[in-house]
Amino acid sequence: MLQRLRDLDFMPPREAGVSPLVVRDLTVAYHRTPVLRRVNWTAPSSGLIAVCGPNGAGKSTLIKACLGLVRPLAGTVEVFGRPLARQRRLVGYVPQRESVDWEFPVSALDVVAMGRYGLIGWGRRVSKAHRQAAMDALDRVGLADLADRQIGQLSGGQQQRVFLARALAQEAQLYFMDEPLAGVDAATEQAVLDVLRELDAQGRTVICVHHDLQTVADTFDHVLLLNGGVVAEGSPATTLTPDNLRATYGARGQGLMG
């Protein structure tokens, strides 16, 4: 099945101007609590994108719905002009660090190699070429010498970089990252920022859930303010206005910009 899906993946030429991500009327609820209501959003085709909003605004839910990890009540997600299910190979993902068991008996290289599994296909072993690609990805985040370490023996920042390297190894066109800069050390922050800029320079799209409003303008070209629905979007300069922040975060919103 994976083989079939791969043949269908379709990357339109850049000049066609197809958006990497179009979300239409997306509504998501957990049990009885609605989290997102009628979200409509067309992601810009270039530049780093931040999704910001208060706790419980539905930031992670939005990207999980875009990734097909949460089933929406209604609405559709299109990746490069086609339904998500037919474009899996084009989509990469960096989850939050807490989402896995770090005691799991695998090395950093094993985890990064998982990024290649979609390219390898059912029942086949990880070839030398794929292992080398995984090694290169580890090198890009500065962890080549820790390749054989069991993942639980890495620091939190290093674990975050392993996840980033795994996403790089996927060679996707559209990346979703859930707070890749949350609570990391300076070395990791630098490594993550370098990778984000490199991906952007290669013409790939990166959408990050980001919690720190003060650093949005330094890193990102485009920001989506979310609170149960889209409040505002655009460049940080025009979007992070006192009115929009109040509408997103409530009365304390203005103070968040420092």
Partner: peptide, 23 residues
């Protein structure tokens, strides 16, 4: 032995497996 790679992937990170399109 044949499904080793797939079983490891799903056991370690089911969400990531789904994103890659693995059932």
């Amino acid at each position: 032995g044949v499904l080793f790679k797939e079983l490891r992937l799903v056991a370690f990170d089911e969400g990531f497996a789904r994103v890659q399109g693995w059932p």
